[in-house]
Each structure stands twice: as C-alpha cells, then as structure tokens.
C-alpha cells in the first residue's frame, strides 16, 4: 500500500517536473486567477474601509433653512455644540460663504449675487470619534432649522472616496468577470493541451496493462499540486502587494487610513487550498476527457 502511494506520488512529481512549460502555464494561470479574485476582495474591502473611516472623521457641513433669520441661525451654534460627539463648530454666514466661493472660483463673476445671495447660512461641524458620526448626523438632520438633506460631507477626499466606492463594485465586477472568463479560457486551453499531449501517453499506459486508476491518479495528483502551487504563488504575490500598498497608503494618508495586516500563514494555506481544489477539478475534467472520447477503449 505504502509502495503504491509512493509510486503514485513519485509519478506525479516526476510528471510535474518533466512537463516544464505545461506545468508553468498551469501554475501561473491558477496563480493569476486566484490572485485576481483574492486581490479584488482585498482591494474592495480596503477601499470600503478607507472610505468609511475617512468619511467619518471629516467635517460635516450643515445648511440652515432660509426661513431662519441670520441672528437666530448664528445662535444655533451652541445647540449644535451641545450634541454629544461634536468637538468643534464654526458658523459660516451666507455672505462669508459667497466670499469663500469667490476666492475659490475667481473666474466666475458673482458681483450681482451679493444683492440676492443664494447661499444658505452654514455650520462646519467637526466630529472626533467615528462611532459618534451617525448619531451626530441624525441629530443635526432632525433639527427643524436645518434644510431637508442639509447635512453634507464636503471634503474633497471624502467625495473622491465616495466616487471610488461607487465605481469599485461595478469596475470590480466587470474586471472580475472578465478575468474569470480569461483565466477560464486559459485553463481550458491548458487542460486541452494536457489532454492532447496525454492522449497518446494514456493509450500507451493502458496498452501495457495499467489500470485506469493507476493512470489517472498521478495526473489528478499533478493537477492538485499545480493548483496548490499556483494558489501559494498567488498568496505570496498578494501578501507582497498588500504590504507595499499598505506602506504607500500609510505614508500618504497617515493615521487616517488603517489597513490591517494580513496573516501570512492563513493567506498561504487558504489560497493554497483554493488552488488545490481548482487544480483537482481541472485535472479530473482533463483525465475524464480521453475516456469519454473512447480513446482508451
């Protein structure tokens, strides 16, 4: 029995080594597919986390209804300051708002607007702790002086991240499906090549009296090994990429971005297993093919 197992494993390892380019193609294809899928999940989770944390740390703008007189509006500052979680409040009267707008957009002529200023009175409200964010926003929104939907997140970074967050699922889906299809085609071709290359070999093996299991077991083992090697390769690439991105993000955005570290062991074992299942399924299809075609009658 042990002799048998040793024989099957030996066959698989020798075939893996001797098949050179075929092995290389299969391993890299599996690695690519696994890397894309796992990487996509990582990137999406990362961006979602980033957008979430960054957004909740930024200043919120609160627009006051036009029906509220200016004096009354400025007095609301104390009330807002009293909301738990609010650390800083700045009142921006409509006139100052227009001034700021003019400074930011000098090419737009706004002189006529000083007469009938269309901007509402506004508060810039800072929230220190993320966990207070949602409750502060809803408290602000529930104030009767605040315009309906009058609580805005004005930050450029926030806006950008929101955009990214909106496009990533679509982009990710399109990219993921495309890559999945591509890697599917690659694997299909690799397997087909294996089948064609092996058809004669299988015929010969059966001709010298080998049982079917004897012939297909090493091949399935070979596929399993290729798949798990590909998965581990994807894991190494992913960990390296993750480490790099994490460093860059942290250099650029400092404490604002919190990307957690990945567990090296769990990543390698997990992706290796994913690859192994993938490789096994593919090689089972590959070794079944010749029999269905009746080559080995």
């Amino acid at each position: 029995m042990l002799d048998r197992i040793e024989f099957l494993f030996g066959e698989a390892l020798v075939a893996l080594r001797r098949n050179g380019w075929m092995s290389f193609a299969a391993i890299t294809t599996v690695a690519m597919a696994v890397f894309l899928l796992a990487g996509l999940v990582q990137v999406y989770a990362g961006i979602a986390r980033l957008a979430d944390s960054a957004g909740k740390r930024l200043t919120v703008r609160v627009f006051i209804r036009d029906s509220v007189p200016d004096a009354e509006a400025s007095a609301l500052g104390a009330q807002i300051k009293a909301i738990p979680g609010v650390t800083f409040v700045r009142f921006v009267p409509r006139r100052q708002g227009l001034q700021e707008f003019r400074e930011k957009n000098p090419e737009i002529d706004v002189t006529g607007l000083y007469e009938a200023n269309p901007l509402p009175n506004c508060f810039h409200v800072s929230i220190a702790d993320q966990k207070d964010f949602d409750s502060v926003v809803s408290s602000l929104q529930s104030m009767k002086e605040v315009e309906p939907n009058g609580v805005k997140f004005p930050s450029d970074v926030q806006e950008f991240l929101k955009e990214v967050q909106a496009t990533v699922p679509i982009l990710g889906l399109v990219l993921g499906v495309t890559m999945l299809a591509t890697s599917g085609i690659l694997i299909y071709n690799a397997i087909r090549m294996t089948v064609v290359a092996r058809r004669r070999e299988i015929g010969i093996m059966l001709l010298v009296g080998a049982r079917r299991t004897m012939v297909w077991a090493p091949m399935v083992l070979e596929g399993l090994l290729q798949g798990s090697l590909g998965g581990v390769l994807a894991g190494v690439t992913l960990l390296t990429g993750h480490h790099f991105v994490r460093q860059v993000v942290q250099d650029r955005m400092g404490s604002m971005a919190t990307i957690p570290t990945m567990s090296v062991g769990a990543t390698l074992v997990g992706l290796g297993l994913v690859g192994a299942v993938y490789g096994t399924v593919c090689s089972v299809i590959a070794v079944r093919e010749p029999w269905r075609q009746g080559v080995a009658a």
Partner: peptide, 30 residues
C-alpha cells in the same frame, strides 16, 4: 493486456520517461 506484450509500430514509448522508467512503469502498472 497484462497477458500479452504489445510492440506497436510506432514503439509507443512514453516520451517523458527514461528508458528504464518506460520498462519500470509497465511493471509497476502491473
């Protein structure tokens, strides 16, 4: 098939196995 030895016209050797492995494989398979 184990009760017959077949020498095919095209030899039918396994191209990725060494000479002794070609024989060894046939034995191990049996």
């Amino acid at each position: 098939r184990r009760r017959m030895g077949v020498v095919p016209q095209d030899f039918g050797l396994l191209p990725k196995k060494r000479v002794w492995e070609n024989l060894g494989y046939a034995m191990r398979a049996c």
